[in-house]
Nucleic acid binder design. Structure first.
Length: 107
RNA sequence: GGAGGACGCCGGGCCGUCGCGGCGCGCAAGCGUCGAGGAACGUCCGGGCUCCAUCGGGCAAGGUGCAGGAUAACGUCCUGUCGGGGCAACUCGAAGGAAAGUGCCACAGAAACAUACCGCCGGGGGCUUCGACAAGCUCAGCCUGACAAAGGCUCAGCCUGACGAGAUCACGGUAAGGGUGAAAUCGUGCGGUAAGAGCGCACGGCGUUCCGCGGAGACACGGGCGCGGGUAAACCCCACCUGGAGCAAGACCGCUCGCCCUUCGACAAGCCCAGGAUGACUGGGUUCGUCGAACCGCCGGCCCGGCGGAACGAGCAAUGUCGCACCGAGGUCGGUCGUGAGGCCGGCCCCAGAGAGAUGACGGCCACGGCUUCUUCGGAAGCUUGGACAGAAUCCGGCGUACAGGCGUCCUCCGCGC
RNA sequence: AAGGACGUAGCGGAGCUUGGUCACCGCGCUCCCCUCGGGCGGGAGAGAUCGCAGGUUCGAAUCCUGUCGUCCUUG
């Protein structure tokens, strides 16, 4: 089990992106809202980012990066990442830096 | 050595650490095991499977279109035929029918489908001109005669006749020539003819539902017969094929709601009520059955025809179990039959999978590529942020498309050497 | 999974049914006139692989096949 659960329903995504705090990078946008009982994460990669292979790999890499953060303990949050075009061409460490920038802005 | 053709294949490998999904074991921690592709893609065809319809006929709609074969099936594949391309290996082709009918063929051209503008030819009609001829009349000249009559000769004019030529008119014949066009009635030559024409002949081309021969057949060869365009990826004709939907199919379970079970007549039976006498019988009512009619519904393109009058229909879903992760038109190896696509037999293997959906990060070594340096030209060392197209969601068979780099086999042509 | 529409000049559209001058319209663009200058107005002009590749035809934007892209519908 990962330290966080997945955000699945459309309504949850809408709530986080509308009510949560927004931290925008050049390739990733991150929304953070208060959660309960567990931290949940959703990752949105639109069709404009690339083909299925690119979108899948990008999502997996973000999940691998999140494994480095202590999300299995409070405070519980609901987090949504939205990838923008060009994110699929980043190397892994560049992507990790993008995530780190977003999390520095949202402690 | 160079140029080219066909077919098949790979899509980096091994090891380790952390992380993810399924399954199995375990009380648990955890352990074991498996875990994307040749195209998983596009969704262009064909099937398996599931539900609905299913008795037949007709029409419509769609598709396919050389032959034989392969296959569960196909619009796929194989072998061949014909036609186009290539010196060749080989390759490409929606490759039935245009004397069943309809439509269209711009511009140009006489004319684009059944015709004839110019031209050529024939026999005619009238016309007038010309030519030579004949007859007649008139005038003139000359000769004989006598300055007469008469006769003869020459020239001119008029008229008539028949002939030839010319132009013209309509009729008929013709399709060689003209010149346009993508395309003009099969091409060239000779004969032939009034002029011409496949009208005849020779060679060639095309068609053929005729005959012979070869072949399983497409078709080929020989003969006979015929020779008025094109377009069917225009309508169409012919032959063959196709029931409809789709795994969000569908099955089971849960909850809620809606709606329906018709009318008339005849016959037979039962029951009830009234009259009659408690019986026979008569009248009424009702239930079930059969038949007929009406109405309604179904038959999922329509009609004929058929079936039925009972069950169904709709909604609620973060949807439970199954379908569903597979013993399968399965993979692989070998044998065998076949030119081949493939068939058959045997051994081995079990090989992703669901809850919106599991593969990512890092390190080491090797192979390949690139760059730099060295070199005894064999190679060696170092560096490397180089490695395509692309991700299963019901499953198969094809087709089509994308793809860094690389490998193998066979064949053709050209050049050189032996 | 099933089905449908579209692609034509810088932009928005017509032409496709029934093939025939390499294609029309509006806005925009260039030049000229008008004005002191600009706009408006008037005149002239340029600009097109008809998404791409094949095929049918004498001839294709139009017909056929394949392919690429965009958008939409149903559950």
């Amino acid at each position: 089990m990962r330290a966080y659960d997945s955000l699945r329903r459309r309504g949850d995504f809408a709530r986080v992106t509308r009510r949560g705090k927004r931290y925008a990078g050049s390739y990733l946008t991150c929304f953070v809202a208060d959660g309960r009982r567990q931290t949940r994460v959703g990752i949105t990669v639109g069709g404009a980012v690339g083909g299925a292979v690119v979108r899948n790999r990008l999502r997996r890499r973000i999940k691998a990066i999140l494994d480095r953060y202590p999300l299995g303990a409070p405070p519980w949050r609901d987090i949504v990442f939205i990838a923008r075009p060009g994110a699929g061409e980043l190397r892994f460490d560049e992507l990790a830096a993008e995530v780190a920038r977003a999390f520095r802005a949202a402690p």
